[in-house]
Computed example of a mutant assay.
Amino acid sequence: MSRADFYLIAKPRFLGQPLLLVCELAKKAYAANQPTLILARDMAQAEELDDLLWAFDPDEYLPHQIVGADEDEDETPVLIAAPETDASSRPLVINLRDDVWLKPCDRILEVVPADPAAREPLRERWKQYKALGFELNKHDM
């Protein structure tokens, strides 16, 4: 059974820069040897994440790239996909888009913004995942 984990942003560190939480989640996945796909909202967000992942941990390089940038992407532990690229699914998917990810995977991580107005689409996604039989978890970050 697949799992969907919703990460609710509350800590000051992530409030101003929610993508830092995405970097943190990607780092944990890399440490656990889980190939990860990050679904960016658009190319600008994909590029911002690319830059953040370069600088995220000065002591440890987190291997990552934007889908379509290089042939070796199958071996790259963390892939960032803009909507216009066709990314194949991976065991772990971090979803920053408004749509439910329906391709096969073991776990989907959803980052929930602190802004209550922005949470409504995520309530819908919670219901959709539940209807699809996902095991659901909520984490305050």
Rank of each mutant, 00 (worst) to 15 (best):
residue 87 A to G: 11
residue 77 P to W: 05
residue 24 E to F: 10
residue 7 Y to T: 05
residue 3 R to F: 00
residue 54 W to I: 08
residue 67 V to Q: 08
residue 94 I to S: 00
residue 125 R to K: 14
residue 39 L to N: 11
residue 28 K to D: 14
residue 128 Q to C: 03
residue 36 T to Q: 08
residue 47 E to Y: 09
residue 25 L to T: 03
residue 24 E to K: 11
residue 126 W to S: 05
residue 69 A to H: 15
residue 73 E to F: 15
residue 134 F to L: 03
residue 86 D to G: 07
residue 11 K to D: 13
residue 113 P to G: 11
residue 104 P to D: 00
residue 81 A to C: 10
residue 29 A to F: 08
residue 18 P to T: 10
residue 124 E to G: 14
residue 120 E to G: 06
residue 83 P to A: 15
residue 27 K to T: 07
residue 129 Y to A: 04
residue 7 Y to G: 04
residue 75 E to P: 06
residue 8 L to F: 08
residue 37 L to A: 05
residue 91 P to M: 06
residue 125 R to V: 00
residue 35 P to H: 03
residue 11 K to Y: 00
residue 44 A to R: 13
residue 41 R to H: 11
residue 110 E to W: 08
residue 31 A to E: 09
residue 110 E to R: 01
residue 124 E to L: 13
residue 73 E to N: 12
residue 63 P to A: 06
residue 80 I to T: 02
residue 124 E to M: 07
residue 82 A to W: 11
residue 100 V to K: 01
residue 33 N to E: 14
residue 125 R to C: 03
residue 122 L to P: 02
residue 122 L to M: 07
residue 96 L to A: 10
residue 76 T to Q: 09
residue 112 V to C: 02
residue 16 G to Y: 06
residue 139 H to M: 12
residue 124 E to I: 08
residue 11 K to R: 15
residue 85 T to Y: 13
residue 112 V to E: 01
residue 75 E to W: 12
residue 30 Y to L: 14
residue 63 P to L: 08
residue 116 P to I: 03
residue 90 R to H: 06
residue 42 D to K: 10
residue 38 I to Q: 01
residue 60 E to L: 11
residue 35 P to S: 07
residue 88 S to T: 13
residue 10 A to Y: 06
residue 82 A to I: 12
residue 25 L to W: 02
residue 86 D to H: 10
residue 126 W to P: 00
residue 3 R to G: 05
residue 94 I to Q: 05
residue 97 R to L: 07
residue 3 R to T: 05
residue 107 R to D: 03
residue 8 L to N: 02
residue 38 I to C: 01
residue 69 A to C: 09
residue 61 Y to M: 13
residue 102 L to N: 13
residue 28 K to G: 12
residue 41 R to D: 11
residue 102 L to G: 10
residue 59 D to S: 14
residue 128 Q to W: 05
residue 48 E to N: 13
residue 69 A to I: 03
residue 29 A to E: 12
residue 104 P to C: 07
residue 58 P to Y: 03
residue 99 D to A: 07
residue 42 D to F: 05
residue 111 V to H: 05
residue 18 P to H: 11
residue 118 A to P: 06
residue 38 I to F: 04
residue 1 M to W: 01
residue 1 M to C: 02
residue 95 N to G: 02
residue 44 A to N: 10
